[in-house]
Write a protein that binds this DNA or RNA. Sequence first.
DNA 1: ATGGTTGCTTGGCAA
Length: 268
Amino acid sequence: MRILSWNINSVRLRLPLLMDVLKRQKPDVFCLQETKTPDEHFPVDALVEAGYAHHHFTGMKGYNGVCIFSKYPIDNKETYKRCGKNDCRHISARIKGKNLSFELHNVYIPAGGYEPDPVANDKFKHKLDFVDELTKWFSKNRGAKDPMVVLGDLNIAPLEHDVWDHKKMVKVVSHTPIEVEKFTRFYESMQWVDGIRHFVPDDKKLYSWWSYRSPDWDAADKGRRLDHIWVTQRLAPALKKQAVLREMRGAERPSDHVPVVLDLKASA
DNA sequence: ATGGTTGCTTGGCAA
């Protein structure tokens, strides 16, 4: 079972690039964030034709938007309002694979704006509140023993080597202590396992995002690991392989995020 | 060095 997550930054603009990725990676399930497309304009037919008959998506004009597409049947589709907003940042569905069934949550945590101060900056407050609400929701409604996957653009790089320069980044939104603290609380509350770091030592630099503003992103390499795939303990024995598709950042008209991929063994 | 770029839309916001 291969799962792929990508902040695509407009699914309509980058549909051809998505088709290439699907052809090469052949994920069984893929999730996108920042589709930026209202449901009535979502390119669902092309993706069904590509083999992903089962889907769940919610989008809006210009901002946000998340989707789940699967080769396997899905049910229990849910769309969540978070922080009292209708902003299309969290959906879930149960994936019914042959020997592997689990609830999949696709999450797009708010970026949080520029100033890392919840009093001065409403967007930063929204980001912190969003993480708190996720923590509470999972604790109240789900159990750590459930087979679950949480993935998406979580917009926080928690570890020192998830950013290009830890000392410079502690004052930059995405790597501040308050964000990392709340992120870690969420992580520990369900005893999640970081499916990507499971295969990559903590002291090795690993990024999934490079700013559009850096003209020479590859040489400068001032990246951050903002995109994650976590599994509950129940699925940890199934972890098989990870990939972060760095080369995708060098595509023509790329997203500023690259896809992250996790393989799970579908054992009985 | 508080810049720089992109996408959705055509002015300005969000990232």
